[in-house]
Nucleic acid binder design. Structure first.
Lengths: 143, 143
DNA sequence: GCCATCATGAAAGTGACATTCATTGACATT
DNA sequence: AATGTCAATGAATGTCACTTTCATGATGGC
């Protein structure tokens, strides 16, 4: 899976006439071996320990490239930071966000999606995408 | 309804020992006679034409007061601007957001809410609030 | 190896809040 | 009416999270 995404990214880059660099390889490795929901800042700090010479701007631009290549997705959870989520082949899911520890869980619910379609239909609305986030306390933080 | 909200705000202010001022009255009037989803910037610009002496900071602080008083609610739609929505008495709803014209419609669906509760329960998650937004083309923009 | 491009990173810029602080204004007290 | 008190105001400034610029530094096709 990790290897597959590396290939997707390599293909995307060569197709776009962009170059493979040490930094991009390092950032991709770090991203793929991280949490599923990571902010630029978090990834930057994680990299700094081993690669203090990689700049914030490079992490920022590289994550944008990941998004364009389809291996990452930009997400806003209302804390003022953009997070990047791993994307796996056309899959979609919604989120449970813990307001105490920041932990993010994913879930899917076919019935909810279907009801959304019905709502949209009844208003003549054509759905492009949606977001559903449930905020509260995760099982751990409820103790 | 407009009168009712003015009373709610007046009560909140006197209860908190805060003062009623010309500016706050003007901002409340302008807010109540506006779109249901307004950013600080939009409200500020709308006010400037008639009241060029009201500062951005005052609009900003006054909208926060409205939110505290329960007559407005802060919302993020991912465009980087906080929007304030009119609140009517403990009501909740979700949104259909048109990606072309920016039009925002509201909807409620009891079944979706119930399914969300089930998902949260199954993960031991305690819901505080949620957000559901459907992005796409409104009936008008589909033509 | 040469060189036209692309990539990098330090620094500066941007936009949308959020805060500061000197001044103003509203009411209560002399 | 003048003064005192203290919250409210708004111009200016600060903050934060990006976002862009620009002077180098790398890369990949001949």
């Amino acid at each position: 899976m990790k290897r597959a995404k590396k290939k997707v990214f390599a293909d995307f880059m060569s197709q776009k006439g962009l170059k493979s660099t040490k930094q991009r390889d390092i950032i991709l490795d770090c991203f793929l071996s991280s949490d599923r929901h990571l902010s630029i800042e978090e990834l930057y700090l994680k990299l700094r320990s081993k690669h203090p010479n990689i700049g914030y701007a490079t992490v920022y631009r590289t994550l944008k490239l990941f998004a364009e290549a389809g291996i990452a997705r930009e997400m806003q959870f209302g804390d003022g930071q953009t997070r990047y989520e791993h994307v796996s082949e056309g899959e979609h899911h919604d989120h449970l966000v813990c307001t105490r520890c920041g932990h993010i869980e994913e879930f899917e619910n076919e019935t909810i999606e279907k009801l959304q379609d019905e709502v949209a239909d009844s208003r003549g609305f054509l759905i492009e995408r949606h977001r559903l986030e449930i905020y509260g306390l995760c099982a751990n933080c409820r103790k």
